[in-house]
Amino acid sequence: GPREVTMKKGDILTLLNSTNKDWWKVEVNDRQGFVPAAYVKKLDSGTGKELVLALYDYQ
């Protein structure tokens, strides 16, 4: 199956793709996968990378 990404509340993840309104593709610890968009919030990183903050645990 697809590689699952797990996250804990407060984690910072790299946002790869947010074109789908329900599932965003993120990368964390060299793993890529989809997380519910409602579970993360975009951060203003000030760099080229888009980052998101995990609002809830997800696994």
Rank of each mutant, 00 (worst) to 15 (best):
A54C: 09
Y56D: 06
G46K: 10
T6D: 08
G10D: 04
K25R: 10
K9M: 07
K49A: 10
D57P: 06
K25F: 15
G48N: 09
K42P: 08
E27C: 14
R3C: 15
F34N: 03
V35L: 03
L51P: 01
E4G: 15
L43D: 02
D22A: 10
Q32V: 15
N17K: 06
Y39R: 04
E4Y: 15
G48E: 11
Q59S: 14
P2E: 11
R31A: 12
E4C: 15
G1V: 11
G1P: 12
L16P: 01
P2N: 14
Y58E: 00
W23E: 02
E4T: 15
D30N: 13
K9T: 06
L13T: 01
W23F: 06
A54F: 03
Y56R: 15
G10N: 05
T47D: 15
G1H: 13
A37D: 02
S18Q: 09
L51I: 09
P2W: 15
W23M: 04
L13V: 06
G10C: 04
Q59W: 11
V35H: 00
E27M: 13
A54K: 00
D30V: 04
D57L: 03
D11R: 02
Q32T: 13
G10E: 02
V28A: 11
M7A: 01
P36I: 05
G10L: 01
K41N: 05
G10Y: 04
L43G: 02
Y58R: 01
L51T: 08
Q59K: 12
Y39F: 13
N29D: 12
G48D: 13
L15I: 04
A38H: 12
V28M: 13
V26T: 01
P36G: 03
V5Q: 03
F34V: 05
T6W: 14
K42T: 06
I12Y: 05
F34C: 13
L16E: 00
N20C: 11
T14W: 10
V5H: 04
R31E: 08
K8A: 07
D57C: 05
G46L: 12
V52H: 02
E27V: 09
V35S: 01
A38W: 11
A37W: 02
L15E: 00
L15K: 00
D44W: 12
L55V: 06
K25Y: 15
K49G: 08
E50C: 13
N29P: 03
M7I: 11
K49I: 13
K41V: 14
W23H: 02
S45H: 09
D22K: 13
T19Y: 09
V35R: 01
T47K: 10
S45F: 11
L13W: 03
D22R: 14
N20T: 05
K21T: 09
V28F: 15
K8D: 02
G33R: 05
P2S: 13
T6P: 05
L13R: 01
T19D: 14
D44G: 14
N29K: 07
L16S: 02
V5Y: 09
D22W: 15
T14R: 11
F34W: 15
G1F: 14
E27H: 05
R3L: 13
Q32C: 12
V52D: 00
N29C: 08
T47R: 09
R3A: 12
D11Y: 04
W24R: 01
T47H: 12
N29M: 08
L43W: 06
D30P: 02
T6I: 14
D30H: 10
V26I: 09
I12E: 03
A37L: 02
Q32G: 05
K9Y: 04
V40R: 01
G33D: 05
K42R: 12
K41S: 09
L55F: 03
S45P: 08
N29T: 05
G33V: 15
G33Y: 15
N17F: 05
R31S: 11
K42M: 10
V26R: 01
Q59A: 12
A38Q: 10
W24F: 05
K25L: 15
V35F: 02
L43Q: 04
L51Y: 13
D11E: 08
V52T: 01
K21D: 09
R31Y: 10
K41F: 09
K49H: 10
Q59P: 15
D57Y: 06
L55S: 01
K41D: 06
K21S: 11
P2M: 14
E50G: 09
G33H: 07
E27S: 09
F34E: 04
T14G: 05
N29V: 05
L13N: 00
R31D: 06
L43S: 03
K25I: 15
G1Q: 13
A38C: 15
A38L: 10
V26G: 00
T6H: 12
G46C: 11
K8N: 06
E50Q: 15
Q32H: 09
T14K: 10
L16M: 06
V40L: 15
R31I: 15
Y58F: 10
W24S: 01
I12Q: 04
S18L: 04
K21I: 07
D57I: 04
A38K: 14
K49E: 10
P2Q: 13
K49D: 09
A37K: 05
K49M: 10
M7R: 00
M7H: 01
D22E: 11
K25V: 14
D57N: 09
R3K: 11
Q32D: 06
K49N: 09
G46I: 13
A38N: 11
Y58H: 03
L53Q: 10
V40Q: 01
K9H: 04
R31F: 10
K41Y: 08
D11S: 05
G10H: 03
V40I: 06
K25H: 10
L16T: 04
L51E: 08
V35T: 01
E50S: 14
L13Y: 07
S45D: 12
V5L: 15
K42D: 03
L51K: 08
G48Q: 09
P2K: 11
K41M: 15
S18H: 08
V5G: 03
V40S: 01
F34A: 02
N29A: 09
Y39I: 07
L53Y: 09
G1L: 12
Y58D: 00
K8R: 13
T19H: 10
G46N: 13
P36Y: 05
M7N: 00
D11Q: 12
V26F: 02
T14P: 08
P36S: 03
T14E: 06
V5K: 02
L15G: 00
T19V: 09
G33E: 07
N20G: 09
N29H: 10
S18I: 06
K42Y: 07
V52L: 08
A37E: 02
F34T: 04
L15T: 01
K9N: 03
V40A: 02
L55T: 04
A37T: 05
R3S: 12
K9F: 05
W24G: 00
E50F: 12
R31C: 10
Q32R: 10
K9D: 02
Y39L: 11
T14Y: 10
K42C: 07
E4W: 15
W24V: 05
K9L: 04
V40H: 00
T14S: 07
L13H: 03
E27I: 11
E50I: 14
L43C: 09
D30F: 09
T47E: 14
K21Q: 10
G48A: 10
R31G: 10
V52G: 10
V28D: 05
V28P: 01
T6N: 12
S18C: 10
N29R: 09
L43I: 14
V35I: 08
G46F: 11
V28G: 07
V35C: 04
W23S: 02
T19P: 03
G33W: 14
D30W: 06
E27R: 09
K49Y: 09
S45C: 14
T19E: 14
Y56F: 13
N20L: 07
N20S: 08
L55Y: 03
Y56A: 10
G33N: 05
V52A: 09
A54P: 00
A37F: 03
G10F: 04
D30L: 07
L51D: 03
G48M: 09
E4S: 15
Q59V: 14
K8M: 08
D44T: 14
G1S: 12
P2H: 13
R3P: 11
D11K: 03
T6R: 12
Q59C: 11
S18R: 08
L51V: 08
T19I: 08
P36V: 05
K9C: 06
G10P: 01
W24N: 00
I12R: 04
A54Y: 02
G10T: 01
T47A: 12
L43H: 03
A54H: 01
G10M: 03
V35M: 01
D57S: 07
L16Y: 03
Y56C: 13
